[in-house]
Design a protein around this nucleic acid. Structure first.
Length: 798
DNA sequence: AGCACGCCGACT
DNA sequence: GTCGGCGTGCTC
């Protein structure tokens, strides 16, 4: 038998199947198996993508060396999916296969030098151990090693190592009958207190054994040394047992059958979805529901329907709203059937959750983008919550969009996909218009509450509080009023740090990052100027580095500065700040939200991570400190992003009985995105924005592909970009628009210059092959220090 | 990718 | 004569 293998070498020439003979001992190889194969002189990891009787290869086939896992980690579905997807997004197939698995399953490669004779073993190079060649860099040793190899005294071995560790715990089994233990107990000294406690426990609770070592220790207050002694005496037998790390241990898993009653709109939506589940239709629904309309309830009911049909369900949520609150909700409804996959878990925890899914031990999977590859079988429903979120598109290779993958999987499983949002992406909403998706609308708030009242504050005319130009008097008054009633406030400012740039008022100098084309942000907590792209740090200047003037100002207010201003204006108020800087540590995210939820703080001040999914009943005021930050970005979808953000954050106010209020500070109160966000009129925004996109020849009227060329040398990046453009111009025809090459809006990041070309097209059958060609050429260009990236349907084209 | 092979200039 | 620089080509 012959196995078709994709090897773990991400390169153009190796991005194809290599065939291997399956030796008799390895009978458990299947499509989806992870294997180790000889490849040239090396050994590499690979994935079996096919098995056949014959081969057309004329050379001598090598044998498969190892099958790594008992259960093939990938299903035939995922193997097939990897091929379709790799082609679609111009990625190597192995890159896709790797990203379908938890990171710990990526192989580690090592090269070691093994001594071949006993006397050489004593050589100072080895010290009894094989020598790790990755750690050898000095010339002298290299010469020595070459000599040894030449004289046949040592040889190089290639190792493929597995990082994945299964968590083991010690369990103790009993070895004797109850009466035998009674006899032992009678025979030991009364002073051996701990041993007596243990034996007493065994006699009394004989049937509870085997027990975990940690359980015995904590129950009886004895230490591991007592257990070790008992094991030595043969009373107990220690056995290492594999357990799953439990990332959900903080949540009670009392699967309660209770569920909220749905209103008629929700029921209609649920019926449509339910019918599709039962009829096994690969249909896509767009569930457009205003904030608070109870989309989540519809999802949960639909998941129940799938489970009743003995089928499984996959639900994606944006990383940022994969809050403990959300997990809790799902967990309470479906109990231990739920597996969760997101970046808050350790690598080990992710691996364990993933294995539970693979073994078919969970029926519901909730996770962020990459969970779309969960090895769930028999999928009856796929839900994508907040479908407009740009985080569903991966920003680096492989640049897949979870929505596209969902649609592919839905076809395979014949199951519906539900895309839900209060502010659907224009692309999805337009598809619903055309009838490619079925539009389901929820127009009423589930709790009958009216939408919060939204006020715009014109920063051009308003007066400010406290001498700074960040917090207007009306906003501060409203905050005071709410806090006086013991209610809570959420404030959004989409910019972290203290001030986003340093400006010299004498010479106009702006302090920039030496590695990137961007200004440095002042961080007061660390007392440094930081680059938000490459992490470069330097001290805060006291004088202008250019003209030595002391008239320097720090402008562009960030969250740290607003926190300071609030603390001055409202001295007794407790403020929590939530941004990348305060949530870097594992668990700090949950901690901040918990403490705000318990009303240990009055104001939650944060960047856009606070805009999504949070549900705090006591929050009655949401303030947006500057609505213009996202709007000023020169991108085709900046209006959409602004509208989304404002609508989402407005939805955080007045979730329970109390009516909410929203105040948006802006310099552009006449802007349509801001005005329509004020009235929370998604349909109105959709109509207006479609006109704008139509006039600008932007998506969804055109398909787009972005080609980015980077190099440490600006000229060569630009030159290569023009070469590529010429190639495109020759092959593509008139209605297609080719923009650029232009430098990216941040023209330099980490000392790499970025040039880009944007292709906008309606119908261009040649483009796909052409882009594959460009990608193939990219490998040659790489030797000249050039990197070429192709991004199908980019989220950002600046 | 990573490794070997092969061809050319420099040095004990 | 041989060591090591890099361009070229292959991996079942």
């Amino acid at each position: 038998m012959i196995a078709q293998v994709i090897v773990d070498v991400a390169a153009k020439q190796t991005d194809r199947v290599f065939e291997y003979h399956i030796p008799k001992e390895l009978t458990d190889v299947a499509v989806g198996s992870r294997v180790v194969v000889p490849f040239g002189r090396r050994k590499v990891q690979g994935f079996v993508v096919g098995i056949s009787e014959t081969t057309s290869y004329t050379g001598k086939l090598k044998d498969l060396l190892v099958v790594i896992d008992e259960l093939p980690p990938l299903t035939p579905e995922l193997i097939a999916l990897s091929k379709t997807l790799a082609d679609k997004i111009f990625s190597y197939r192995i890159t896709i296969l790797q990203s379908m698995l938890p990171r710990v399953m990526k192989a580690n490669y090592r090269k070691i030098l093994v001594p071949l004779t006993d006397e050489i073993k004593e050589n100072t190079l080895f010290k009894g151990e094989p020598l790790d060649l990755n750690e050898v860099s000095d010339l002298e040793t290299i010469v020595k090693i070459k000599k040894l190899i030449k004289n046949n005294q040592a040889k190089i071995e290639y190792l493929v190592e597995n990082k994945a560790k299964k968590k083991q715990v010690a369990a103790y089994l009993l070895t004797k009958t109850r009466t035998e233990y009674q006899d032992i107990l009678g025979g030991i000294r009364t002073t051996a207190k701990n041993q007596r406690a243990l034996l007493n426990n065994i006699v009394e609770k004989y049937n509870e054994y085997p027990k975990l070592g940690s359980t015995i220790e904590s129950e009886l207050g004895i230490s591991s040394s007592t257990l070790r002694a008992a094991e030595k005496k043969g009373w107990l037998l220690k056995k290492e047992q594999e357990i799953y790390r439990n990332p959900l241990k903080d949540f009670e898993s009392n699967a309660s059958k209770h569920s909220v009653r749905l209103n008629s709109e929700q029921l209609d939506a649920l019926n449509s979805i339910g019918t599709s589940i039962k009829e096994k239709e690969a249909k896509t629904f767009l569930l457009e529901g205003i904030t608070g309309s109870g989309k989540t309830e519809v999802y949960l009911h639909a998941i129940s329907t799938a489970l009743e049909q003995k089928r499984n369900a996959l639900m994606l949520v944006p990383e940022i709203s994969l809050t403990p609150q959300m997990v809790k909700q799902v967990k309470e409804r479906f109990g231990d059937n739920v597996a969760v996959l997101h970046s808050g878990l350790s690598e080990g925890e992710k691996y364990d959750e993933w294995r539970r899914i693979r073994r078919g031990e969970s029926q519901v999977v909730v996770g962020a983008r990459s969970a779309i590859f969960a090895p769930l079988k028999n999928i009856g429903l796929i839900v994508i919550d907040e479908e407009h979120e740009s985080s569903y598109k991966q920003n680096d290779t492989p640049r897949y969009h979870a929505r596209d993958v969902a649609l592919l999987r839905s076809k395979f499983h014949n199951c519906p996909v539900v895309l839900g949002s209060a502010t659907p992406s224009l692309a999805s909403r337009a598809r619903a218009q055309k009838g490619r998706y079925k539009l389901l609308r929820l127009t009423k708030r589930a709790n009958q509450k009216s939408l919060p009242k939204v006020d715009l504050i014109d920063l051009k005319t308003v007066e400010f509080a406290g001498g700074q130009f960040d917090l207007s008097i009306p906003l501060v008054d409203a905050i005071k009023e709410k806090l006086a009633k013991k209610e809570q406030v959420i404030l959004l400012l989409n910019r972290r740090g203290f001030a986003s740039f340093m400006l010299c008022r004498n010479c106009g100098f702006v302090l920039r990052c030496p590695n990137c084309d961007i200004s440095l942000t002042l961080h007061k907590d660390t007392g440094q100027m930081q680059c938000h792209y490459c992490g470069h740090k330097e001290p805060i200047p006291r004088k202008c580095p250019n003209c030595q003037s002391e008239k320097i100002r720090f402008l562009g207010t960030g969250t740290q500065k607003v926190q300071e201003e609030l603390e001055t204006l409202l001295p007794d108020v407790k403020i929590l700040r939530m941004d990348v800087d305060t949530t870097r540590r594992k668990g700090s995210y949950k901690k901040i939200l918990d403490s705000f939820g318990n009303h240990q703080a009055d104001i939650l001040l944060g960047t856009q991570m606070i805009a999504k999914g949070l549900d705090f009943p006591n929050v009655t005021l949401v303030g947006v400190i500057n609505a213009d930050t996202a709007l000023s970005l020169p991108d085709f979808n900046s209006s959409e992003k602004t509208f989304d953000l404002l609508t989402q954050v407005a939805g955080r106010a007045g979730r329970a009985e109390k009516t909410g209020r929203v105040m948006i500070q802006t310099y552009n109160p006449e802007n349509y995105a801001i005005k329509l966000a004020q009235s929370q009129d998604y349909e109105g925004f959709y109509q207006k924005e479609m006109q704008v996109r139509f006039q600008g020849n932007y998506p969804p009227f055109f398909y787009t592909t972005l080609i980015t060329i980077t190099s440490k040398n600006e000229q060569s990046a630009a030159k290569e970009a023009f070469v590529i453009k010429r190639k495109l111009m020759l092959e593509l025809h008139a209605p297609t628009i080719i923009l650029g090459p232009t430098p990216s809006s941040v023209a330099k990041i980490k000392n790499q210059y970025y040039y880009q070309i944007l292709v906008k097209y309606k119908y261009e059958p040649k483009l796909h092959d052409l882009l594959h060609q460009i990608q193939d050429d990219a490998q040659l260009a790489q030797k000249r220090g050039l990197n070429i990236y192709i991004d199908n349907e980019p989220e950002r084209i600046m």
